[in-house]
Nucleic acid binder design. Sequence first.
DNA 1: TTAGGCCTGCAC
DNA 2: GTGCAGGCCTAA
Length: 271
Amino acid sequence: MPELPEVQEVRRTLEPHLLHIPITAIRILRRDFITPRNAPLINLVGQCITRTHRHGKKLFLIADDRQTLHLHLGMTGHVDCVPAKTPIAKHTHLILELATGTHIRFHDPRRFGGIWYYPTLEEALAAQTQNLGPDALALTPQNLAHWQTARGRLKQRLLAQRDVAGLGNIYVDEALWQAQLHPQQLVGRLTPVRIKTLIAAIRQILRRSLALGGTTLRDYRNASSQPGQFAQQLHAYGRAQLPCHRCQSPLHSAQIAARTTVFCPTCQKRH
DNA sequence: TTAGGCCTGCAC
DNA sequence: GTGCAGGCCTAA
């Protein structure tokens, strides 16, 4: 499931195929995957995507510093760069055809993701990053200073994207395991030192995952169809009942914030 | 604060 | 056939 490292990896592998290459045609296979449904995508034909931008799990493709496509991969979104003759896979919703003959294809079987069109980057950012916290890779203690007087528990606050953007279920569980913090820990009771530890854990987990191309449990592939290798490095996610890699106690699994949450009851204590 | 809905594929 | 996977939004 694409979280920050996977979206960044899609961006990295997509750029060489896409940037500065004229778009020769756009095929919309599923109009309701695009917002607004009457988006004038035809205006992109003849233009080039000149840069990309990522904030948390959100990816932006920007044409000549104006028109912007925002991609959200949801649970099962993929971007594929393939030769034009490649058969079109099931659940392909949008295709950008490029002057090089490459097709950029957006798939999403479950359609939890989507594509948004904006006439300008400013409008895209205003609409899409309004309620988004700082990108998880740039998180600082100052960004979480308001936790001192905030309600809520770590798991739900880290998943909500408002305090920090880019973490999903996998990396929240991994970061909490790394930082030895309980998912039900009240954020208002965290000491500054523990917040620093948490931030360091988040950054370390994300960087290590990025270095291995992200986490592939089953579906995730980058824009070059390659899986990530971080799944083999997971300490918490998907390891319920297995021994903790730190203290050998069996890991617990519980529904927290409506998500399956795996943690070590021995070394992740509440404070 | 929680539950439900979206949606498909896969394990059982 | 059933249940589960969960990002994100809406509603109770």
